[in-house]
Design a protein around this nucleic acid. Sequence first.
DNA 1: GTGCATTTGATGCAGATGCATTAACCCGCT
DNA 2: AGCGGGTTAATGCATCTGCATCAAATGCAC
Lengths: 125, 125
Amino acid sequence: MAATPETNLVERWRDVLTCYSAVSCALERALQDAHGLGMSEFEALDRIVDAQCEKRRMNELAADMYLSQSALSRAVARLERDGLVSRDMCAEDRRSIFVRITDTGRDKHAQARETQRAVLAEHFA
Amino acid sequence: MAATPETNLVERWRDVLTCYSAVSCALERALQDAHGLGMSEFEALDRIVDAQCEKRRMNELAADMYLSQSALSRAVARLERDGLVSRDMCAEDRRSIFVRITDTGRDKHAQARETQRAVLAEHFA
DNA sequence: GTGCATTTGATGCAGATGCATTAACCCGCT
DNA sequence: AGCGGGTTAATGCATCTGCATCAAATGCAC
């Protein structure tokens, strides 16, 4: 028997939990303090920028992220309120929304990415 | 140069994020559906049972967990409301609270642990 | 003992999340 | 064209979380 697989499972989970808690907490604080961004907002911006195309549909975005549809809807609403993205009608399918990053949003994301990488470097060192 | 360390950092973080999201979501749902327990409640019970001693002070418990002090306070309040733990005065330091697991709580935890391990086994397979 | 900083757990409050529902829209079938 | 089922994003609601604050209790300096 290979050293109690049950215990290993729980240990692996605890490791993930510990890592996630520490990093997400630090990230949340750093992004908030330095840029006024929550982690979900940054993550959404990040996915939009990563995709080569300028515009992203809400549902494509939701599929990439761990957020529920409603949470994403509100996160994008906050980003729009802060002028970092715009929500445009999609002519082909009028139910869909194109989320487009603004110039301000692009700048903000570039700055925030620096913060993110600094925090990650610190915690994964 | 060893394959862009920056990108590796972000990838590592995304892996943690993906894993945490999937598992915590599944765990939350499974525990809630099968036992009416949230993940934080289960985690708190788990820490109490894991500690060899019957009683745990709130602050010791908080130190073990990723929760804030206030969140823990309310999680324990929910556990007490459901009859799974009791909060007793501590004679030595009357600010402190002893959290003690009840028989009902012990049973519930034993059952919930089965669910937890099943979910973990499924996701870490 | 007295006074003051610290510690401990509870609570008011604002913000974020998920679930269920809703409104608008698309598509296929007749 | 019209209807019904499925899809997309927004919203009401309840819950959980963290921050700041509070009251009670401790203990340290004097």
